[in-house]
Design a binder for these strands. Structure first.
Length: 295
DNA sequence: CGTCTTTGACCGGCGC
DNA sequence: GCGCCGGTCAAAGACG
């Protein structure tokens, strides 16, 4: 079980013109990305049970203070929406911090393959921080994974940068002849690691997710959004900036078996290192809520 | 042999 | 300028 929290680091400009649509969509109060908590709860209650043990809850935390956009009560119905948008455009950094409460090794994936390139002990933190970058050589996306010093069950994952490519499995989806299990990661000498449990959980975070969030979720989502999702095109920028878990924190395993789209969907190999999910905003509305004040 | 992890070294930013 | 700290590099080893 884990819960998840998403925050944003607002810093330098990161949206370019090509992201305008995304911003507008995010700012649109009808946007599926802004789901009221009650809506979320409704959806949550609606989801068939037993639900996956991966996700127990999703919660959000406003970091609007970082941007000065602290007027949460006004929401995006405010007449100042345009002003807020301008501020967004100039202050949001493409950094997302997720706090994931985890139990055991069952974590989630974000649909991308990551290569670990470093690990550092952080001052005043009992747990090391691991550094990952996207395995795609053309992609500069990175992420940092560390265990919360306050709650050792909480993983803090900071995503940075945009993926300049589709998810691994989306790539496969379009190239069926290339479907094969992703390169497996070896996880050796874990006993040598100072914080073994963290390592294991971390490994799960980067490896096991696919099996947990694999096409079953997408299949379920497609089942409900068949008309639209069967023709999922290239994934949008939000896929790049919003981790999959945020976009689709639930794994609707109960619906996994039936979908008209699975024929075109690659099977998820066990222990694969990437998710085979495509993303759709429509799905997102069902599974994640984003505090509007966050943006 | 290719890929990946590990881990010490290195580098740059920042505060004093 | 110096030291601390976080982020990255890259060599070495493990693994399939």
């Amino acid at each position: 079980m884990f819960s998840m929290e998403i925050t944003e680091d607002h810093g330098t400009t990161w949206f370019n013109e090509s992201d305008d649509d995304l911003i507008r969509e995010l700012l649109d109060n009808e946007s599926p990305f802004f789901v009221l908590p009650q809506t979320f709860e409704t959806e949550e209650a609606h989801l068939s049970k037993p639900r996956t043990n991966l996700v127990s809850e999703v919660y959000t935390e406003s970091t609007a203070a970082n941007t000065g956009l602290t007027d949460q009560s006004n929401g995006f119905h405010s007449r100042n929406a345009a002003v807020l948008e301008e501020k967004l455009m100039s202050k949001i950094d493409n950094k997302y911090t997720l706090k994931i409460r985890s139990c055991g090794n069952e974590m989630s994936d974000d649909g991308y393959k990551w290569r670990k390139y470093g690990q550092k002990s952080i001052k005043n933190s009992p747990h090391p921080r691991s550094y990952y970058r996207c395995t795609n050589p053309r992609c500069s996306a990175k992420k940092q994974v560390e265990r919360s010093s306050q709650d050792s069950d909480t993983l803090v994952i900071t995503y940075e940068g945009l993926h300049l490519h589709f998810t691994y499995t989306n790539f496969l989806l379009n190239q069926p002849q290339l479907i094969q299990p992703p390169t497996k990661r070896s996880k050796t000498n874990i006993n040598q690691v100072q914080d073994r449990q963290f390592q294991e959980t971390e490994a799960a975070q980067t490896q096991q997710i696919p099996a947990l969030f694999s096409q079953t979720t997408l299949a379920a989502a497609r089942f409900n959004h068949q008309d639209k999702l069967c023709d999922v095109g290239p994934q949008g920028l939000l896929e790049d900036m919003v981790p999959l878990m945020v976009r689709r924190p639930y794994n609707s395993t109960t619906l996994s078996s039936s979908t008209s789209c699975t024929s075109s969907y690659p099977s998820s190999p066990p222990s694969s290192s990437s998710s085979s999910l495509s993303w759709s905003p429509n799905i997102f509305t069902q599974y994640a809520s984003v505090n509007s004040s966050t943006i």
